[in-house]
Structure formats: structure tokens, C-alpha cells
Design a protein around this nucleic acid. Structure first.
Length: 422
DNA sequence: TCTGGGGTCCTAGGACCC
DNA sequence: TCTGGGGTCCTAGGACCC
């Protein structure tokens, strides 16, 4: 049996934990640049229809009228709170698969001798007591069914956030309850295709011939079909696989025409992603850079392009990657456009111990000691304490807008220690 | 007249997730 | 004025190899 634990409106709940004055009140969290709504608690959802990813400016008046509190996103805080939840989960099972910042699967097989409903309630209550965060728990024989049980636990009040599918009867009931959109893995396109042949519920989906599912929805659809029927076929992995790509792409606070400012943002993003690379001990073979104008704008001239550069030797050296990314940026930059975004992607990631040298270049490897010192300083004194000069010092000209960011509730003590050591 | 067969690697695009 | 960001997996098709 697998339990699926998922925090309720996670970002909004994290903000509320530290603001007792907002308990029971509507709260939303905004995306980078305060552009869209990315989380809304149940009070906010009850008050007014809030489509996720709705641009804030379109419904701002409505939200203000309803006294909804806004927060800019504070990912450091959410990461810390997530860590706390995962730590608690590891006391309930030795096998925890962290699926996303606010979700995890845990293997509870071998616990059939106890009442799984009680166990779910205990997990939920323990997390609530120790972190203040509300969660839902779904328990079932496969991941897709556990996901579904979790959804039912939240949507059907009688389950009060813990739902177990452990009999054939309950499984059929759950499948008949679930619309296709409630199934993890059935996205918009598949829902549409299924609707066209008269399939509206998960139960109907599992009654389709496997050959049709396989042909129309590939092996991905086949796995869903089998999982919903109780046959487990999605692996359970407690050790996270190393990432195959790391990238970052953020919109500018304002639109930029100036190559130099875009170069700075690009260099900064490379510094961010190469740090991830070094943490997972990988080197990148390719670096991709892209730029785009604001495609929502009707007035601006539109342009976007990208370039991928192959490194002569895969590397995780910030400076080497900044140099290549900069060359690529120069090739795609065209003057006269108002750019909204620059992004970088590092792909072809390989373990650093398997890096193949280049026959035609000197074998001198990049100086690892320098990167170690850079990472050490930045970890100790804060992000970008030291960086490439190409990052520049005029960050405020392209950085994100975060007007309503909450305080550093979980890392403040770290800040104090840092100040002391100065 | 008649033109093989078995592979790998890479990329772009689609679909999906949170 | 104002519209997120970071990923994964799968497939088809092209280029290439022997």
C-alpha cells in the first residue's frame, strides 16, 4: 500500500502559519513579478472564483473588495517548510519519495495489521501539530489510486482529509466518483479526446479496450489504465535521480532593450544553475540561451530566438559557461526590441567523474578550487556575495518585482548568525 | 526488370505535472 | 501598465553508422 500526502494550498498555508491574524481569512500567493496567482487558500476560493494563473490585474479589484491578503512568493520559506514535512514523514515509513515541494508518496506496505485510516489520521495530525500545515492523505495499492484517494479526501468532507482505497468495492466507487479531470496524468488534451468518445469518468476510462488506450495515448495512457485497475506499474523511488537538465528563465521587472542588462541577467542565471550542477556533481555538455519579447503585447514588435552551444569539454565551471552563454546571446540579440525574458538551459548533464577530455585541447581542467571558494562564500554570506563581474551591479534594473514578500521566518536566525560572524 | 537490413543518436514537439 | 517557472517522459523523423 502507498500513502500520498499533499499539503493544502501549500504556499498560502506556509504564509498563514506565521500570521495567526490571517487564520481563517482569504490569502493568495503571487508568481514572480507579482504577475499571476499561483496559490489561493480555501477561504479565498470560496469567496470568489479564482482561476489559477489568472493575471492579478484582471481580478485585483475583486480581491481587494473581498479583503484578500496578497503575498509575493517566498520560495526559501516554502522550501524550509517542505523540509519539515518530509522529515516528519520519514518517521512514518523508511520509504519516502518526495514528489514535489508539497507532496510525497510513502510506502506503507507491511502495515496492514493496523487500521490504515487511523494511520492516515495520525500522519495528518502529526504534521499539523509540528508544522501548522494542513494536509490530505490518500492510501491505496497504486500511486495513481493513492493520488485519487488523496483528491477524494479533500473534496468529500465526510472523509475529513484521509481516504483509504483498500477493497475492490471502494476502488470501483472511487473510479465512478472521479471525472477524467480528477485522474493524475489525464490532462486537457486527453480529457477532450475521451469526451469525444463519450468517456467522462475514470470508471469508463478503465472499461475502454487497452488496445485503444495504447494506440491513442501511448504507453503513458496504458500505465494509467493499469494503475487505476489496481496493477502497480509506476516505480517507487526513494533516491531522487540526478536532474537531466537545469535551467532558469525569468521575466524582467521591466522590459529591456539594452544588451548589457540582458547579459547581466544571463550571467546571473548561469551562476544560479551552475551552483545546482555542482551540488549534484554534474557537468553540462550543452548550454542553451534564449530571449523573447512580451508575447502578450499587441503594440511591441515580437521576436524570439535561441542558440545551443556545445562545450568542448563538459563543465560545471561558472565562468566557462558564462563565456559561452554570452557568445550565444550575442548571436541572437537584435537591437530595437523590448525584451521581456532571457533564459538559460544546461543539458547533456553527466556525472562529473565521467567527463571525457578533448583530444584537441589542453587537458588542464578548470580550477575546481576557485568554484569551491565561490560556493563557500555564497553559502556563508548569502547569494551572489561573490560573482562574475559580468553579473554587474545594477541588478535592480532587471530583477523581479516582489512587493509583498513575507519576512524570512525560518531563516532569520541564520541571518543573525551571519551578521555576528561579520 | 531487379537497389538491404539492423542499428544508434539527436532533436523537436506534444503532453503532462506541480 | 500589469500575463510564472521548473521539470519529466514519449514519439517521430532525420542523419548517420556498419
Amino acid at each position: 500500500m502507498i500513502a500520498m500526502i499533499d499539503c493544502n494550498s501549500f504556499y498560502a498555508s506556509c504564509e498563514q502559519v506565521f500570521r495567526p491574524d490571517l487564520w481563517g481569512k482569504p490569502v493568495v500567493v503571487l508568481s514572480n513579478n507579482d504577475g499571476c496567482i499561483i496559490a489561493a487558500n480555501k477561504e479565498a476560493k470560496a469567496m470568489t472564483h479564482i482561476p489559477m494563473f489568472e493575471p492579478v490585474f484582471k481580478i485585483k479589484d475583486q480581491l481587494i473588495k473581498n479583503k484578500v491578503t496578497f503575498f509575493s512568493s517566498n520560495y526559501t520559506l516554502y522550501g524550509e517548510m517542505s523540509q519539515r514535512v518530509m522529515n516528519i514523514l520519514s518517521t512514518f515509513s523508511p520509504y519516502v519519495e518526495v514528489y514535489s515541494i508539497d507532496e510525497a508518496f510513502i510506502d506503507v506496505s507491511g502495515m496492514e495489521h493496523i487500521d490504515l485510516k487511523d494511520y492516515g489520521v495520525l500522519i495528518k495530525d502529526t504534521i499539523a501539530i509540528h508544522t501548522g500545515l494542513p494536509v490530505g492523505v490518500g492510501i491505496a495499492p497504486t500511486k495513481v489510486l493513492a493520488k485519487l484517494a488523496n483528491k477524494i479526501s479533500k473534496k468529500e468532507p465526510r472523509f475529513s482529509h484521509v481516504c483509504v482505497i483498500d477493497t475492490e468495492k471502494k476502488r470501483i466507487e472511487a473510479l465512478k466518483w472521479a471525472k477524467t479531470k480528477d485522474v493524475w496524468g489525464l490532462g486537457k488534451k486527453h480529457q477532450e479526446r475521451l469526451k469525444n468518445i463519450g468517456v467522462f469518468t475514470a470508471y469508463q476510462f478503465t472499461e475502454l479496450p487497452l488496445s485503444w488506450v495504447r494506440k491513442q495515448m501511448t504507453v503513458v495512457g496504458e500505465r494509467l489504465w493499469r494503475e487505476l485497475r489496481g496493477e502497480s506499474c509506476i516505480d517507487f523511488t526513494t533516491i531522487p535521480k540526478p536532474k537531466k537538465a537545469v535551467g532558469t528563465a525569468k521575466s524582467f521587472g521591466t522590459k529591456l532593450e539594452d544588451l548589457e542588462r540582458i547579459e547581466e541577467a544571463c550571467a546571473y542565471y548561469i551562476s544560479e544553475v551552475t551552483e545546482v550542477l555542482r551540488t549534484q556533481k554534474s557537468c553540462a555538455t550543452y548550454v542553451q540561451v534564449f530571449v523573447t519579447t512580451n508575447y502578450h503585447s499587441n503594440i511591441d514588435k515580437q521576436y524570439s530566438d535561441s542558440r545551443t552551444v556545445t562545450m568542448s569539454v563538459p563543465t560545471n565551471d561558472t565562468f566557462a559557461l558564462i563565456r559561452e552563454a554570452r557568445k550565444a546571446l550575442h548571436l541572437i540579440y537584435k537591437p530595437g526590441y523590448r525584451y521581456k525574458k532571457v533564459g538559460v538551459n544546461l543539458t547533456g548533464l553527466i556525472p562529473q567523474e565521467y567527463v571525457q577530455g578533448n583530444l584537441f585541447e589542453s587537458t588542464k581542467l578548470h580550477d575546481k578550487r576557485l568554484m569551491k571558494v565561490v560556493d563557500g562564500l555564497n553559502n556563508k554570506y548569502g547569494k551572489a556575495t561573490v560573482s562574475s563581474a559580468l553579473v554587474g551591479t545594477r541588478v535592480e534594473e532587471w530583477e523581479l518585482i516582489k512587493k509583498e514578500r513575507s519576512k524570512r521566518m525560518t531563516t532569520q536566525w541564520g541571518d543573525l548568525l551571519t551578521v555576528k560572524s561579520h
